[in-house]
Design a protein around this nucleic acid. Structure first.
Lengths: 197, 197
DNA sequence: GGGAGCATGTAACGGGTTACATGATTGG
DNA sequence: CCAATCATGTAACCCGTTACATGCTCCC
């Protein structure tokens, strides 16, 4: 952790509700590290994307500015070398309170699922069976890759006592992607059966 | 099916790529019925939403106009009563070809998953265990509801020989939501274990 | 009478992405 | 030397939603 921050207290009014992305970014900071926007993006790629999604880097910078403007984070320039400038962000007590309230009280949006593979199989009357099977098979590979990646993430989380909840979620993620793989297999069997009859 | 349609052939240039929503709407029409925007919305709510998502009605109207402007659908006013007007849409051969090509050749986007429950558990260090369990338990209920709804949809699909592929996908959907329920149960067990230690 | 369903649309807004611009450092 | 990584940001664009507007019919 770096030295005491010195960001100007430019308080705007807090908007009634922030998008989930803002809470996700704030959440990344709630594990207590001082991080740059760039760091945040890397971390989102390595963990968030398995069960939520990883915002574009430009959006992360935007969210950080918004969060600072309402006092949920503070930042300071950290001249690492002589010339280069990077900006470190830290969650404020106000931000931590707001995030805690959000976790506890905000209504949980139903999970968003947009499954391009299912959409294409749903239109199976427009393709030949072999092409459909190929789509599902490719998706199976994808699920296996995700499973491997989330397992890797879980191993990393297991090294740090602060990350017990991320680890629980990554365990969930492993099961999720394993299920996705099995679902692909089951659909392949269903497609085979269709062709036989 | 109604009488031969008579829509003006106002061809614009076809954009290089349409959003998946446009293909989904076109896909609904590819099952061969002439439908209104309103019908499309109801049908999307009853089937698409289980594995993709159901666009807002206003967006459906917008997509229909776009699809018509590029010649993928045609429409005509169908005065059902003396006064009321509704507009029926039908897929064109050009639209069917384009959709077929899309199903066969377009790269399949990785599935989008935004799981608000997982996001909150990931931030479990900010909440008390009972609140976390409640969130997961509520999600379990949700999964069970979705499972019931998709089963119902599958029973409907099973009545029509044109809907074999939708039925395959709905079978997939049943397994998906059953898995989601089981995943919630497993996470509850993990949370219990955390509290014991 | 009034609410629910049928039916179509417009306008404003915000969320999120890609593309672009800049520039320094590190390592093969 | 060049590519990759670090690091930050702007601008254009589009997707999609909510809110609003309109009006009819059916049924309690």
């Amino acid at each position: 952790m770096a030295n005491p921050p010195t960001s100007p207290p430019r308080s705007k009014t807090v908007p009634k509700s922030l998008p989930a992305t803002a809470w996700a970014v704030l959440g990344l900071l709630s594990f207590g590290r001082d991080l740059t926007g760039y760091d945040l993006k890397k971390w989102a790629d390595a963990s968030l994307r398995f069960f939520y999604w990883s915002p574009a880097i430009s959006q992360i910078y935007g969210e950080l500015r918004r969060l600072e403007s309402i006092g949920y984070v503070e930042s300071w320039a950290a001249p690492q070398d002589e010339l280069r400038n990077k900006r470190l962000y830290r969650i404020t007590p106000l931000g931590r309170d707001a995030l805690t309230t959000w976790v506890r009280d905000s209504p949980v949006e139903p999970p968003v699922l947009k499954h391009g593979v299912a959409l294409r199989i749903w239109l199976g009357h427009l393709a030949d069976p072999a092409a459909l099977r190929e789509i599902v098979a490719a998706h199976r590979e994808y699920a296996v890759e995700m499973l491997a990646a989330v397992s890797e993430a879980r191993r990393t989380a297991a090294t740090n006592p602060d990350w017990t909840y991320p680890e629980v979620v990554e365990r969930w993620g492993e099961r999720y992607w394993a299920a996705e793989r099995d679902l692909a297999d089951a659909m392949l069997r269903d497609l085979d059966e269709l062709d036989l009859t």
